[in-house]
Design a protein around this nucleic acid. Structure first.
Lengths: 225, 225
DNA sequence: CTTCTACAACAAGGATCTTCATAAATGTAC
DNA sequence: GTACATTTATGAAGATCCTTGTTGTAGAAG
């Protein structure tokens, strides 16, 4: 469940980020037109929260671009209040929903969930990699159909990797994503090592056909066995 | 039991909100014409408390719009005192009730209840999640039709969660919602633990198909079994 | 005044996560 | 290849958080 938040106002952007991360979404952000396009080109997201007024260009153009490229991403337009015509235009261009500022964060997360459920294959939000299936809807994991109970941090880590299979992830990024912002200038990743050990053990013992390999000096990568 | 309060004056709006939330309604608010219309388009409410004088347009127009779209929402007009013609006009347009400012909050809640009971499906205000049914009208809970007696705090907690199924709720938020404002900077959630224990026990023993799961370091979440 | 009820406070045990100490693996220089 | 430094893994201790049973207390009911 990866979400790209395109919003130029920093405070709002960070509020949205924390809120969504609390709901266990993986959040990436872009603060202007260009960086949004770059991120979109590089990564796949499940949902894009898109502001209209952006430095460097309009959110509508980003939306058009997404649709032109035939991407499957769901888009929620977020725009200043009183912009009634924005709503019409956005939906015309193929946005999945529209939310007027200011909005309740709970409203945003509710819509994201409903949109993803609506647009994805019959409401199934699960992610599968080899014989491991992770269901973000109820935070469960199964291997070959057998349930594999994971603790919270283990789940979060696996979720992060299974959303980015084969991608090299450095430890700071991982720490930021799973542990949150309070991990600032940590020079010691013991807590990652500890969690990684437990998660790997459970994956191995469950017969999972995947493995989190470490890349010396960089971080980790999820691969098929 | 979701209510939309459309009122531009912030202090009154928040007073109404707190009052209604204390009566266990779920409250959303809009402060102007446009945001009210947008909210109305997006969600279903059981009742709308509608001010007439609004920035951006008149409450009457909102009312007309509601009726034109054939929505079933109940509407209570709230307007400045001595505006007799407002009352006539409002009721003509299909409002269910009229309340002149200033009014007692108790009166507002009483009218809301009576209207909902009068107009809704044979007066049923209940919320159901899996095999658990909660009836805010008389503060009772039943599991598979069997009555499940809960104490006050237990009921409040269950109500809070059953209104937000599957949503992650942190403990401060829960404390604020159930215990109220006097829970400020509490660093000790023993009282939540105690209540949670009793509620869980009752739910389990009653055969409820729901469970309040804890999320380590965060809070709780209501899920189906 | 006594008893009962609802709730919070306390305390002990268990679960979960991080920190620490130490070992193993990997990379670099010679 | 060997020696050394750096990075990662592992097991165990420590810290924090959650659960549960018991006890204490204030207010309502009798």
């Amino acid at each position: 469940m990866k979400i790209l938040v395109v919003e130029d106002e920093k405070s709002l952007r960070e509020i949205i980020r924390t809120s969504l991360e609390k709901e266990r979404f993986i959040v990436e952000t872009a603060s202007d037109y260009n960086s949004a396009l770059i991120k979109l080109e590089d990564y796949d997201y499940d949902c894009i929260v898109l502001d209209i007024m952006l430095p460097g260009g309009s959110g509508f153009d980003i939306l058009s671009e997404i649709k032109k490229q035939g991407k499957k991403e769901n888009v929620i337009i977020v725009s200043a209040k009183d912009a009634w015509e924005d709503k019409v235009k956005g939906l015309d261009l193929g946005a999945d929903d529209y939310l007027a500022k200011p909005f309740h964060l709970a409203e945003l997360t509710a819509r994201i969930r409903s949109i993803i459920r609506r647009n994805n294959n019959n409401g199934d939000m699960s992610i599968t990699f080899n014989n491991v299936k992770l269901n973000p809807d109820n935070f469960t994991v199964s291997v070959n159909g057998q349930s594999l109970p994971l603790l919270r941090k283990e789940y979060d880590i696996l979720y992060y990797f299974i959303s980015r299979p084969e991608r090299l992830v450095n430890k700071s990024t991982l720490a930021e994503a799973v542990w949150g912002d309070h991990i600032d200038g940590v020079d010691n990743f013991d807590f990652i090592y500890a969690q990684m050990k437990n998660l790997r053990k459970k994956l191995k013992e469950s017969g999972a056909g995947i493995e989190i390999k470490s890349v010396y000096g960089f971080g980790y990568k999820l691969v098929e066995l």
